[in-house]
Write a protein that binds this DNA or RNA. Structure first.
Lengths: 193, 193
DNA sequence: TAGAATTCTTGCCATAAGACAAGTTCGGCT
DNA sequence: AGCCGAACTTGTCTTATGGCAAGAATTCTA
C-alpha cells in the first residue's frame, strides 16, 4: 500500500502517527475506467475518494436538460459530493471519470467513526471544508468579475492537467461559456502566440 | 435572555437538552449601529454572530480597489467569515452593518471547546458548512447560467429583506452587474408591472 | 432646513458572449 | 483501413451588459 499520497493529504498538526496510520488503514484501493460513473444523479453518495491519478468531472443537469460541468477533480484531490455524502440525501450531481483513474476510497461509516473519535481528524475535516468554501466563494465572484478569456488563462496556469486531458466542451461549460465562444477565445489566444 | 432564536438555530437530532443549554449559554448579546464594522480587512476574526435582526453585508476589494459585495446576512442568519475564523488568518473581507443590528456572539475559543466536547455540535457544524458549500457552489453556477434579471427576481423571492433594506448599488454588485445595468433591469421589470 | 454628497437614472456607443447553422476534423469501432 | 458520430471551428446576426458622462433624486449633516 503506497501511503505517501495519503500521508500528505491527511497531514495535520493535530493528527499523530498512530492516528494517521488508523486513518490510512481505512482506505482501500479502487480503479475506474474512462467513462465510468463514480456517482449518479439520484444515488446517495456513500464514500469519497482520493484521486491518485486521472481526471474526473462532476456535472448536473439544467432545468432544460443541458449538462453543466460544476467541477473537475485531478491528481491528489479529494473527489466528493459533500451535500449527498454528509446529508445522506440523493445527489443532484454526477461524477464521471474522464480518463482511467486510480483512487483510494473511504466509506462514510468508517469516516464518521474516525471523525468523532479523533479530534485532529474533525479539525482536518473542518479545515478542508473551509478551503472548499473559500474556493467556491471565490469562484462565484470571479465568474462575473473576470472575463471568460481571463478565467481560461487562469485555469491553464492553476490546473494545466485539466486543459490537457479534458474535452474542450467540458472546459467551456466549466468556464461558463458555450463551446462556440470558447473556440473563438482559444483562437484569439493562439494568434497572440 | 431570549433563547428562542438560538434554540432554533442549534436544533439538531444529536444535540440534547443539556448540551443545547450549554451552547446557548456560550452566547452573549451584542448590538451594532448602522455603518459599524463587524470585521475589517486584515483582522483575524475571533467570533461569529447570530443575527437576530438587521442586515449586514460582506465585501472584498478588487485588484483595482473596487468594492465587491460577496454576501448579505439577514435575520436569523449566521454572520461569519469562515476562512479567517477557522484558519486563524487575516481576513480579506469586511463585514459591515447596513442597518442597526442585534446579535448573539460566540467567541472562537468557546466554540472550539464545544465543538470538540459535544459530538452533536461538530455534526451540526459540518451540516452547516455543507449547506454553505452548496449555496456557493450553486451561486457560482447560477452567476453564469442565469441572466442578471432572473437572478434579481430570484433574490426578491428568496430574500426580500435585502431588496427592501439595502442600497441598490450593493445589490447590483452582489448580482454581479453595474448599478447602471441594474437600474435598467429594474425599470424593465416595473414596466411589465 | 439649506447645501453638499451620495445614490440613482438615463442616453449613447462599445464589446463580450449567445444562437443557429454549416462545415471540418478527430477518434472509436468493426 | 474506412466509416460514423462526436467534437471542434467558423460565419453571420442578435442580445445582454459595460463604460462614461450628465442629470435627477435622495440622504446626510451642519
Amino acid at each position: 500500500m503506497n501511503k505517501e499520497l495519503l500521508c500528505q493529504i491527511y497531514s495535520h498538526p493535530l493528527i499523530g502517527e498512530t492516528e494517521l496510520e488508523k486513518i490510512i488503514q481505512a482506505h482501500r484501493k479502487v480503479s475506474f475506467k474512462k467513462g465510468a460513473f463514480i456517482l449518479e444523479e439520484g444515488e446517495v453518495s456513500n464514500s469519497y475518494l482520493i484521486l491518485e491519478n486521472g481526471l474526473m468531472r462532476s456535472f448536473a443537469h439544467n432545468y432544460n436538460g443541458t449538462d453543466i460541468t460544476t467541477d473537475f477533480f485531478s491528481n491528489q484531490e479529494i473527489v466528493i459530493e459533500v451535500l449527498s455524502l454528509f446529508q445522506r440525501i440523493p445527489s443532484r450531481e454526477n461524477i464521471r471519470a474522464l480518463t482511467d483513474c486510480d483512487c483510494w476510497e473511504i466509506k462514510f461509516d468508517t469516516f464518521q467513526e474516525l471523525f468523532h473519535s479523533i479530534p485532529g481528524f474533525s479539525e482536518w475535516g473542518r479545515l478542508w471544508m473551509t478551503n472548499r468554501l473559500f474556493h467556491f466563494k471565490q469562484r462565484s465572484v470571479e465568474m462575473v468579475t473576470i472575463s471568460a478569456k481571463d478565467r481560461y488563462l487562469q485555469l491553464i496556469k492553476e490546473k494545466p492537467q485539466i486543459v490537457l486531458q479534458s474535452p474542450l466542451k467540458y472546459i467551456a461549460g466549466y468556464l461558463g461559456i458555450t463551446d462556440t465562444s470558447f473556440s473563438r477565445i482559444r483562437k484569439e489566444i493562439s494568434q497572440e502566440h
